[in-house]
Amino acid sequence: MSARERILARLRAAEPGAPVAPPDVAAYYAQRPRLTPGERLQQLCARLRASRADVMVAQPAEWARVAADALHLRGVRRLALNGEVRAEELAATLPPVIEAVRFDGEIESWKQEMFATIDAGFTPASAGIAATGALLLNHGGALPRTLSLVPPISLVCVDARDLYDDLHHASSSQRWADDMPTNRVLVSSPSRTADIQQTLAYGAHGPRELVVVVIADGDLA
């Protein structure tokens, strides 16, 4: 017998114990009060700011300029991004001092360059979670994981229509379990640690700064 078979056999031979009903997770979240879109936006921004993210709310026509300004202000020279729509919008708006570096081709061909020379990475979020102030990045395919991880500044945009009350609300509405990308990441602050005498420090191993632009039109903004 293999280790696998022996372990499974031992588990199957165990005392049965009292019967256990399946947990009704949906019912628990259903009885929690729902937020309005305005409350969601407000909570998301407040939570993100409380964990040291720089958050801006901008109109759809303005967001790219707001984002470009934020990068310019931080002295960013090289911004890594992919080829999707929001990235194109942003790239078209960048001032000449900021170079848009396309993430195309596998990381191996430019790992060193990525680690050493890229100041910021741009990733559009697929959802925002009001309860925890978190942004969903669906990494994989056209959205490489290192974009939101290796550069010292992480720039994320999120559409105000994609905000949800809590993780359960988002995952059930967007049916996450049906199609898991290689790497779903929820990010709620710059990288941080309190491992030295419980003193909070930012920029542990991931980005030191998290810049968020929430794209909201008229009635919400």
């Binding site: 898991m180 790497n183 929820l186």
Partner: peptide, 13 residues
């Protein structure tokens, strides 16, 4: 309320 990262990995590259 949440850690900085929830990292959900579904398979290799």
């Amino acid at each position: 309320a949440a850690t900085t990262y929830f990292n959900l990995i579904t398979g290799p590259r």
